[in-house]
């Protein structure tokens, strides 16, 4: 890593190629889906380990919702579509 004090090129609006603000996949609590089932779906859909899947499931259960993924909008919409196929109550939201 260089320690030389070089002038960094600050990204300008023309050269800024950062993607859009990340979008979020949110799962909401509902009284019907089983806790064991939601944990299973998180593991099956996102490949999360048991611990992470259970932690997110508990967040949904206790806090009413949890962010389960973030990234490009299209990717989040695909996640939500898959979660809907499992009957989870999921939505896309722009991160703010």
């Amino acid at each position: 890593m260089s320690t030389a004090p070089v002038e960094l090129d600050q990204p300008t609006s023309e050269t800024d190629v950062r993607p859009d603000l990340p979008w979020l996949t949110i799962v909401w609590n509902d009284p019907i889906n089983l806790m064991s089932y939601v944990t299973y779906v998180f593991q099956a859909v996102f490949g999360f380990g048991k611990e992470k899947a259970e932690r997110l499931m508990m967040d949904v259960h206790k806090k009413g919702r949890a962010v389960v993924a973030s990234g490009a909008r299209e990717e989040m919409e695909r996640h939500v579509e898959v979660l809907h196929s499992y009957g989870l109550w999921a939505t896309v939201k722009k991160d703010d």
Partner: peptide
């Protein structure tokens, strides 16, 4: 409930 909205605060989306 089987076909929920994909966006919560944006009706058009």
């Amino acid at each position: 409930r089987l076909f929920p909205d994909g966006y919560r605060e944006d009706g058009e989306a």
